[in-house]
Amino acid sequence: MKYILGFALLSVLISVPSMAVEAFQTFYLATAVRAGKIELPRGICEMTWKTVAGSQVKLTIKMEDERTVTVPARMVEGMQHETGVVTSVVNGITYLDEFHTKNAKFIIRNKVHGSK
C-alpha cells in the first residue's frame, strides 16, 4: 500500500509542471506606442504576465532589442475572438490600451488619458 501511495504521489508531482500554463504571448507593434510614460518601438515584442492581486497583473514586455519594460494592467479572462493590440491616439501620441490573447485581454493602466 505504501508503494502504491508513493508511486501515485510521485506521478502527481511529475505531472504538475507540465500542467502549468505558459503565460506569454508574442505580438507585432505596427507603430511605436506608449504604455503609460514608457515608449515601445515598432516591431515584435514578447509579453509575459504575473498576477499581483485579483485581476491586477504586471506585464513584462521584451522588445526585439532585448530591452524589457514592466507595466501594470488589469486582466479580464475569457475567450477573445481575435488576438492583437488595441491602441488610441491622444494629442498626436499613440498609446497602447489593450493586449488581446486567446484566453484573456489585458487593459494597460494609462494614467495620462484622463489628465489635461
Rank of each mutant, 00 (worst) to 15 (best):
residue 10 L to E: 01
residue 11 S to N: 06
residue 12 V to A: 11
residue 12 V to N: 01
residue 13 L to T: 03
residue 14 I to V: 11
residue 15 S to N: 10
residue 15 S to H: 06
residue 15 S to M: 13
residue 16 V to D: 05
residue 18 S to G: 14
residue 19 M to W: 13
residue 20 A to Q: 03
residue 20 A to F: 07
residue 21 V to K: 11
residue 21 V to G: 06
residue 21 V to D: 10
residue 24 F to E: 14
residue 25 Q to W: 11
residue 25 Q to E: 15
residue 27 F to M: 01
residue 29 L to W: 04
residue 29 L to P: 03
residue 29 L to E: 01
residue 29 L to I: 03
residue 29 L to C: 02
residue 29 L to Q: 03
residue 30 A to Q: 05
residue 32 A to T: 03
residue 34 R to E: 08
residue 34 R to L: 14
residue 35 A to N: 01
residue 35 A to E: 00
residue 35 A to D: 02
residue 35 A to T: 00
residue 36 G to L: 11
residue 37 K to H: 00
residue 37 K to R: 04
residue 39 E to W: 10
residue 39 E to D: 14
residue 39 E to P: 06
residue 40 L to N: 02
residue 42 R to M: 14
residue 43 G to S: 10
residue 43 G to H: 10
residue 44 I to A: 15
residue 45 C to W: 09
residue 45 C to E: 10
residue 45 C to P: 00
residue 50 K to C: 06
residue 50 K to A: 11
residue 51 T to Y: 05
residue 51 T to G: 05
residue 52 V to Q: 01
residue 52 V to K: 03
residue 52 V to P: 00
residue 53 A to E: 01
residue 55 S to L: 04
residue 56 Q to A: 13
residue 57 V to K: 01
residue 57 V to D: 00
residue 58 K to T: 06
residue 58 K to P: 00
residue 61 I to F: 08
residue 62 K to M: 12
residue 62 K to W: 04
residue 63 M to I: 02
residue 65 D to M: 10
residue 66 E to S: 15
residue 66 E to W: 14
residue 68 T to R: 12
residue 68 T to M: 15
residue 69 V to L: 05
residue 69 V to S: 09
residue 72 P to I: 07
residue 72 P to A: 04
residue 74 R to C: 10
residue 76 V to C: 03
residue 77 E to A: 14
residue 77 E to W: 05
residue 80 Q to R: 05
residue 80 Q to W: 07
residue 81 H to Y: 02
residue 84 G to V: 08
residue 87 T to L: 14
residue 88 S to F: 07
residue 88 S to Y: 09
residue 88 S to G: 11
residue 88 S to I: 09
residue 91 N to A: 15
residue 91 N to D: 15
residue 92 G to W: 11
residue 95 Y to N: 08
residue 98 E to A: 15
residue 100 H to L: 14
residue 102 K to W: 05
residue 103 N to S: 14
residue 103 N to L: 15
residue 104 A to K: 00
residue 105 K to G: 10
residue 106 F to I: 09
residue 106 F to H: 13
residue 110 N to R: 03
residue 110 N to E: 07
residue 110 N to P: 05
residue 110 N to Q: 08
residue 111 K to H: 13
residue 112 V to E: 04
residue 114 G to P: 01
residue 114 G to Q: 10
